[in-house]
């Protein structure tokens, strides 16, 4: 069995572990670190429920091995709220009813955060394009877009 020592920074905290090479990043986050906010939706690199930020880029954590994240800075949905205060994207999803069943929400929010950090004033088209790797099976896209728009306004103060 091939195991490797990795050290990653997750939501600001450094974590170290011995991981098997075949351990997927999403399983490392959920099962080893107990960060179950990151969901597994499809297991086929299709749905984006497992989206996390890997060195600032939004990626599908089911399609990256944990060993590849050695030395990386990761952000998950658990890292959004700071000091008990919700992140503007969380406020947006709450106030604009950006979720129905909520399963896709962590991935949607992480992809949105990456989008807004790269492009603070996205048009509606840019939001839809930016979130095109994230599927909502409730088809609640209209309110998801509104949530991102509200967050964009809020983040600009």
């Amino acid at each position: 069995m091939s195991t490797h020592h990795i050290q990653v920074k997750v939501n600001g905290a450094v974590k170290a572990a011995e991981v098997e090479s075949r351990l997927l990043l999403v399983h490392f986050l959920r099962e080893s670190l107990n960060l179950t906010g990151t969901h597994i939706g499809c297991d086929t690199t299709s749905c984006g429920a497992c989206t996390v930020l890997w060195n600032g880029r939004a990626v599908k954590s089911c399609t990256l091995f944990a060993v590849q994240a050695d030395g990386a800075e990761l952000r998950t949905v658990e890292g959004l709220a700071q000091d008990g205060k919700l992140h503007p994207i969380q406020v947006g999803f709450h106030e604009k009813h950006g979720l129905q069943c909520g399963f896709c929400t962590p991935g949607m929010m992480m992809a949105s955060v990456a989008l807004l950090e790269a492009n603070p004033k996205p048009t509606e088209d840019e939001i839809r394009w930016g979130l095109s790797g994230n599927l909502c099976r409730c088809t609640g896209y209209v309110n998801i877009v509104k949530a991102v728009q509200q967050a964009a306004e809020q983040m600009q103060g």
Binding site: T3, Q7, K9, A13, V14, K15, A16, A17, E18, V19, E20, R22, L23, H27, F28, E31, S32, L33
Partner: peptide
């Protein structure tokens, strides 16, 4: 045989 049964430690940055 599960690949996620290894221990994780909190580390000092």
């Amino acid at each position: 045989e599960l690949p996620w049964n290894n221990p994780v430690v909190e580390a000092n940055a």
